[in-house]
Structures are given as C-alpha cells and as structure tokens.
Amino acid sequence: MNKTNFTAEQNKLTVTRTFDAPLELVWRAWTEAELLDQWWAPKPWQSKTKSMAFKEGGTRLYAMIGPEGEEHWGITTYTSIAPTTSFSGEDAFCDSDGLINEEFPVATFVNQFVANENQTTVKIETAYASEEQLKQVIAMGMKEGLSLAFEHLDEFIKQKFKLMGDLKTDGQARVTTYLNFPGTTEKAFTFYKSVFKTEFSGNGIQRFGDLPQEQGQAPVPEDIKKMVLHAELPILGGHVLMATDAPKEMGFTLEQGNNMHICLEPDSREETQRLFDALSEGGKIIMPLEDMFFGAFFGSCTDQFGINWMFNFKM
C-alpha cells in the first residue's frame, strides 16, 4: 500500500503520495467537486462542497461534516493552474458564507502532479506565516487527517477502475455494448434476460461487496456493496451486453448520452491504438489509451458524431 510521506522544515510542510492511477484521473479527483467529496475527509467525517469554481481567482467553499452533524468550514482560493501539472492557492478556515476565521492559520500551497507509467505522484508544499502556526495545525491532526483522506482516494481509484477492468474469457477480438446504470443494473438485466431468454455469462452478477478486503483498505460503503460491479448477458447473434452500476456516490453523473458505450476489444495493441486514433480524431478523448494496473491497455473517447467508445485490450 502506498505511503504518505511528511517532511516539516521551519514553517513549511511537504507531503508526497503516489497513487495507482493515471495522471488524468488523479487530477480530476483533486479538481472536480463531485469527486473531491468522495474522499476529501477522514472517516467518519464527510466532505460537502457548497460551491466550487476551479479557475484562477476561483474558490471552493466546503464543509467537513462529522458523524453528529457538526460542521467545520473551509475555503480554498486558486491562484494559479497549470492543467494536469500543478495548481496553487490558499487554504483557510471560514464560516458557511466563506468569511475567513482569522483565529486559525492561513496556508499557502502548491500541489504538483507527476505521471510515472501507471502511477501518479502528488507533491504538496504548504507554508504558514510562522513555525508556530505549522505546529498548531499539526497538533490539530493535519497529518492523520491527510493520511486517512488519501486512503479513501486509493479506495475510490480502485473501485473506479473495477468498473472498467472487466476480464475477457479468451484472446479473441469482440465488440460488446457497455451500459451504465445509477443502481438499477440488476433490475434492467433481469428484464433483458426475460426478453432474450438467455442466461448471464462470465461470472454472473458480480457485486461491489464481492471485492476482497485488502489489509489497511477502507471498507466498501454498505450502500454500495449490493450494487452490481459487472454483469454480462448474450443477446442476439453472439452479441453481449455488459453493464455496471455507476452511482453518484462513486463520482458519476449519468444522463442519456453518457450511459452507453460501444466497447471494442481488439486482438492486438497496435489495432487498439489505430482504432482509438481514428475514432477520436475530431472528437473528444475522455481517457487516453494507457496501460492500466488491472492488466489492460484501456481508453475511451467520444467521436465527432457524439458516439461513446471504449477500448479494452487485455495484455
């Protein structure tokens, strides 16, 4: 399991942590409100963003909500942003309207993101007005809180990739249709099963609760455990429907148009790259093709006509 490293020198604290995910996903987890709220708090606390504008001069106003409903408010002001490379700004304690509480230290920070194959290292340099202020926030539990929050980010990343990391039964090329549901996969696929009069293939219905619990890893939330991690159902002519639940709790926002992908599983890395390059030209790359830790050369895009494609070559 990756370790959070802390180095304190006078009034500055340097924190480094490596995450088992590509740069784009880690960057999004730090810069999008819906994803930040999935991990930016030590359990049993929760993070809730009231407003966020991730741009130079913009702010994020958020609350840390405790198990008894207590709220501690914070505000981040973004001063500079270099996409997927770094962002800097100020962090302060405040009230629910964003009025800064001057009784607590204000921190200036620089967050840097460095890609290394299938991993991303985040380096956070935080400075305070004095060494005494740094000692104050450390005494308030800053190190412990960050370590726990980063463990939650590890969990979020692992579950996110489980949604994508389906196993093929052989090395043959195939095309499937991949569907996302907001928690209704089992109901939908039970209906499709009755229509096409076929049986689930692969390992049947797999659930998030079936994931093995690794030592030191935060448990899967109870409301997620019963949701469908993966299901596949043959329909006509050898075509297969695949699906997963993609709930808001996992950082997804589903709507008609982004809940369905044509999933290509080519028989070579070269063909995967060729198809990806051709279909993404003039469109939008959602996730660049990269070697994933779950053993696939994976990516996704929306073509110039608005059709969603997934690419999944098992190495």
Score class of each variant (00 low, 15 high):
residue 2 N to Y: 01
residue 3 K to I: 05
residue 7 T to L: 07
residue 10 Q to W: 01
residue 11 N to T: 09
residue 11 N to Y: 05
residue 12 K to D: 00
residue 14 T to D: 04
residue 15 V to A: 13
residue 23 L to W: 00
residue 28 R to A: 14
residue 34 E to Q: 09
residue 35 L to C: 11
residue 40 W to P: 01
residue 44 P to Y: 02
residue 50 K to H: 10
residue 52 M to T: 09
residue 53 A to K: 12
residue 55 K to D: 15
residue 60 R to F: 03
residue 63 A to Q: 05
residue 68 E to W: 03
residue 68 E to I: 10
residue 71 E to C: 04
residue 73 W to M: 08
residue 82 A to P: 01
residue 84 T to G: 00
residue 91 D to E: 15
residue 94 C to V: 06
residue 99 L to P: 00
residue 100 I to C: 03
residue 102 E to A: 12
residue 104 F to K: 05
residue 104 F to T: 05
residue 106 V to D: 01
residue 111 N to H: 09
residue 116 N to H: 07
residue 119 Q to H: 06
residue 124 I to W: 12
residue 124 I to C: 10
residue 132 E to L: 07
residue 133 Q to R: 00
residue 136 Q to V: 02
residue 147 S to R: 11
residue 147 S to K: 11
residue 149 A to Y: 10
residue 149 A to N: 05
residue 153 L to T: 08
residue 159 Q to V: 10
residue 168 K to Y: 04
residue 169 T to P: 03
residue 170 D to I: 14
residue 174 R to K: 14
residue 175 V to C: 12
residue 178 Y to N: 02
residue 178 Y to H: 06
residue 180 N to T: 12
residue 184 T to M: 04
residue 192 Y to R: 01
residue 193 K to H: 09
residue 196 F to M: 06
residue 197 K to D: 06
residue 204 G to A: 11
residue 205 I to F: 00
residue 206 Q to C: 05
residue 213 Q to C: 02
residue 214 E to S: 15
residue 219 P to N: 05
residue 220 V to N: 03
residue 225 K to N: 03
residue 231 A to D: 12
residue 232 E to A: 15
residue 236 L to S: 13
residue 236 L to N: 13
residue 239 H to F: 14
residue 245 D to L: 10
residue 248 K to M: 12
residue 248 K to W: 07
residue 259 N to Q: 02
residue 263 C to H: 06
residue 263 C to W: 01
residue 264 L to G: 01
residue 265 E to G: 11
residue 271 E to I: 03
residue 275 L to S: 06
residue 277 D to S: 15
residue 277 D to Y: 11
residue 279 L to W: 08
residue 282 G to R: 02
residue 282 G to Q: 02
residue 283 G to F: 12
residue 285 I to Q: 02
residue 286 I to L: 14
residue 293 F to T: 14
residue 294 F to N: 04
residue 295 G to K: 01
residue 295 G to L: 04
residue 297 F to M: 08
residue 297 F to L: 13
residue 297 F to H: 15
residue 302 T to W: 00
residue 304 Q to F: 01
residue 310 M to Q: 13
residue 313 F to Y: 15
residue 315 M to F: 12
